[in-house]
Write a protein that binds this DNA or RNA. Structure first.
Lengths: 147, 147
DNA sequence: CTGTCTGTATGATAACACCCAAACAGGGAA
DNA sequence: TTCCCTGTTTGGGTGTTATCATACAGACAG
């Protein structure tokens, strides 16, 4: 079975790329998709998949290690840290609401009707469509770039 | 009656200050608190209230003007734009999808169930959508800083 | 050992974000 | 007119973000 991670980088958002990557790794850990011991995409793999410079990925991974989310092992790869606890449930809720609020504001600015917004959100949720997994063994993930 | 705008700037977020200000103005406009013709805080007033440099506010206002949200009039002030910027259906669709996809990816990373996402989006749409008001007189707003 | 994967580390370059100070110019009221 | 509000513009400074190219070093299979 192939596991995929969806990474979405929005250059127009003004948010630094390395920080967007950090957030998304944290979200995967918080959501349970990435579990203790799982191997993250290598620096070069992630960099080429997202067409960013490896240095940028290094920065993201280094900061994530400083935050205790991941561990990097020379010559082996980057792995989800044991003592992760990257994000609290409350922070997850805040993150979701912030993103939803942003969508709501933008849609209102664009004068899109609420039903239309709901429809599009449903479509995009289906498009992302995660693969359900109850596997307990540490796995390696590939990247699905989103730009 | 005194009208107040609450501005909150988070320096640790990594999001550029001028962009945080832009988002909040957009939110007020989308939500109907700021209406066509309303006068925004002056550049210097907003800058001193938030203890940021006036140049930063200039950048935010300039970008907002480029987005068609506000208009700046030399010697008079900054006002909420009358005419919504002309945008094609296609541009509207692209912008909406981009924002929706961002939310979908993030929700998936957090392993939030699609129904839950829809619920939150509905709530945020309701929170943004203004109750139609009969008051048409333009007003001036002051700033209450949040730091 | 060799090849190839992995992370680690530089220095140079460019663009952006933010601050600071100062000056210029329009609008409107005393 | 003068005064004080307003936006406009310029030049200089610092730190961050991100790119590119290059090199070094650990892990491991063949």
């Amino acid at each position: 079975m192939i596991h995929r991670l969806h990474f979405q980088i929005d250059e127009r958002s003004g948010v630094p790329v390395y920080r967007q990557m950090m957030d998304q790794v944290k979200y995967y850990v918080a959501g349970g998709t990435l579990r203790q011991g799982d191997q993250l995409p290598s620096i070069r793999e992630l960099a080429s998949a997202l067409t960013v410079n490896p240095t940028t990925v290094v920065k993201a991974y280094t900061e994530l290690e400083r935050d205790g989310v991941i561990e990097m092992r020379h010559g082996k790869g980057a792995f989800v840290s044991g003592r992760a606890k990257a994000i609290t449930r409350e922070e997850q809720e805040v993150a979701l609401r912030r993103s939803a609020k942003q969508l709501a504001v933008e849609a209102t600015q664009l004068q899109v009707t609420p039903p239309r917004v709901i429809t599009v959100v449903r479509e995009e949720l289906n498009a992302v469509n995660p693969s359900p997994s109850a596997d307990e063994t540490p796995v390696k993930f590939t990247v699905v770039p989103g730009r």
